[in-house]
């Protein structure tokens, strides 16, 4: 087994009890076949966590936006068949942890590792945003700015574990959303 950890990963001890512990297991093909399911899951997660907050409407929109980007990314880059994707959400006081685990192709495994490293090491995400846009043309199929926008515009920490085991490439992405910084 080969393991690489990038960014802020497991920054909350795993044995700490969480509120609102939600676990979802699904098949990427079911999301690809009906894309709207990404948004539906995001809206569910947002409604589930936001209604207890002081500004539920504003936070519902934020949580849904963050969750949607994470689930869209995982769906797009998952092995489509014969693999599952899991989502684990836990609320620790004012920090919402969203963990998404999926199995990817060799090619995406390496390119995502490199992309995430670049994002987390950058001290100027605005410039990176402009540079990525400048490389885009109207024929581009992938925007490539989802995680960048989340890191740039939302109070969020991100980390990931990349595991190669038995010929499978597993990506475990963790996002820690500081809800109090968003009110």
């Amino acid at each position: 087994m080969e393991e690489t950890i990038i960014g802020k990963y497991n920054i909350i001890p795993e044995n700490l009890p969480a509120e609102g512990d939600v676990f979802i297991r699904l098949k990427p093909i079911d999301m690809i076949a009906y894309w709207k399911r990404c948004g539906m899951l995001a809206d569910f997660a947002a409604a589930f966590y936001a209604y207890t907050r002081d500004e539920p409407t504003v936070q519902e929109n934020s949580i849904s936006t963050v969750f949607n980007e994470l689930i869209e990314n995982a769906t797009k880059y998952s092995v489509k068949r014969g693999a599952e994707m899991t989502i684990h959400m836990m609320l620790y006081d004012s920090v919402l942890k969203i963990q998404i685990e999926n199995i990817t192709t060799d090619q995406h495994f390496e390119s995502f590792k490199s992309h995430l490293t670049n994002l987390l090491e950058s001290d100027d995400l605005d410039t990176m945003y402009f540079e990525i846009l400048a490389e885009k043309s109207e024929g581009s199929t992938d925007s490539g700015i989802g995680l960048l926008l989340l890191l740039k515009d939302y109070p969020l920490d991100i980390g990931a574990k990349f595991t190669k085991e038995n010929g499978r490439n597993k990506v475990t992405l963790q996002a820690f959303y500081r809800l109090d910084d968003d009110e």
């Binding site: 948004g39 929109n61 849904s64 936006t65 949607n68 980007e69 869209e72 846009l133 885009k136 109207e138 581009s140 992938d142 925007s143 490539g144 700015i145 989802g146 926008l149």
Partner: peptide, 17 residues
């Protein structure tokens, strides 16, 4: 507009550019 994902933001950014 209640929601716009990153592909949408990219599309509109390219229009603005």
């Amino acid at each position: 507009l209640q929601f716009l994902n990153s592909s949408g933001i990219t599309t509109l950014s390219l229009f603005i550019l």
